[in-house]
Every structure is written in structure tokens, then in C-alpha cells.
Amino acid sequence: MSSDGVYSHPRIPVTATPAELERLLWVFVALSLVGDIVTTFVGLHLGLAESNPVARGAIEGYGLVGMIVLKGLAVGVALFCRSLLPREYRPIVPAGLAVPWTVAVCINVYMISMVI
């Protein structure tokens, strides 16, 4: 079977370098981190419970400071792992933080809306 070399590849209409994408994703990490902390503590204030046992232990033992330290440790591990990757793969690191934290924010907002 032969081909004339014409293939249709879907393209994102905006081009960005891996460094630009990574920078944007780190902004997303910061926003999702703050959103997770805020919505977690609003939910706790309204009587909801933290479902993550590690986060629950940090919050019960040290409150807001414990949660911030826990998030800081996650960012620190991510930054260390980032240095082990080739440049073109580094955007996966902030995406790996931002996606689950954004999902947590969405779940928290949903749970808060059910209580209010």
C-alpha cells in the first residue's frame, strides 16, 4: 500500500513552546492550589469532612499551616522531578499537580453547594 504523503493532522490553532506551556501550567497550579485550600476550609467550616486521609491528618494536627506545608511538599517533589525530565516533557509535571487539584476544587464546590 502506498501513500502520497498527505495526512490530516489535527492542529491546535495556537502554537506554544514547551517552556511557554509549562509557564502557563504553573500559573494553573497556583490557582488550583489556592482554590483547593480555600474550598477545603470553607467546606470544613460548613461541617463537611476531608476525604483524603493524609490531608485530614495534616489539617487536624496543624490546621491551615499543615495544609500549606502538605501542598508545599507536593510542589517541592514536583520541582525536583521536573529537573529529571527533558525540556519538552517538563509541562507534564505542573499538569500532574493542577489537574487533580482542579478536580478537587470542583468536587469541593459541588459539595459546598449541596450544603448551602
Rank of each mutant, 00 (worst) to 15 (best):
residue 3 S to V: 05
residue 3 S to N: 15
residue 3 S to P: 02
residue 3 S to L: 11
residue 3 S to A: 13
residue 4 D to V: 07
residue 6 V to E: 14
residue 7 Y to M: 12
residue 13 P to N: 08
residue 14 V to K: 12
residue 15 T to L: 06
residue 15 T to G: 11
residue 16 A to H: 13
residue 17 T to Q: 10
residue 17 T to R: 12
residue 19 A to I: 00
residue 20 E to P: 01
residue 20 E to C: 02
residue 21 L to C: 05
residue 23 R to M: 08
residue 24 L to C: 03
residue 24 L to G: 14
residue 27 V to F: 01
residue 28 F to K: 05
residue 29 V to T: 00
residue 29 V to L: 00
residue 30 A to M: 11
residue 33 L to T: 15
residue 34 V to K: 07
residue 35 G to S: 06
residue 35 G to Q: 08
residue 38 V to S: 05
residue 38 V to W: 08
residue 39 T to H: 07
residue 40 T to K: 12
residue 42 V to S: 08
residue 42 V to D: 09
residue 44 L to V: 15
residue 45 H to D: 14
residue 45 H to K: 12
residue 46 L to S: 04
residue 47 G to Q: 11
residue 48 L to V: 10
residue 51 S to T: 15
residue 54 V to S: 07
residue 54 V to D: 04
residue 55 A to K: 08
residue 57 G to H: 10
residue 59 I to H: 04
residue 60 E to A: 15
residue 61 G to I: 04
residue 63 G to H: 09
residue 69 V to N: 02
residue 72 G to S: 13
residue 72 G to F: 13
residue 72 G to P: 12
residue 76 G to W: 06
residue 77 V to H: 02
residue 77 V to A: 15
residue 78 A to L: 08
residue 79 L to G: 04
residue 80 F to R: 08
residue 81 C to T: 09
residue 82 R to F: 06
residue 84 L to R: 15
residue 89 Y to H: 11
residue 89 Y to V: 04
residue 91 P to T: 02
residue 95 A to T: 03
residue 95 A to P: 01
residue 95 A to H: 00
residue 96 G to F: 01
residue 97 L to V: 03
residue 100 P to N: 03
residue 100 P to K: 07
residue 104 A to E: 10
residue 106 C to R: 07
residue 107 I to D: 11
residue 107 I to R: 11
residue 107 I to G: 04
residue 107 I to Q: 10
residue 110 Y to D: 06
residue 110 Y to V: 06
residue 111 M to Y: 06
residue 113 S to C: 04
residue 114 M to F: 03
residue 114 M to N: 10
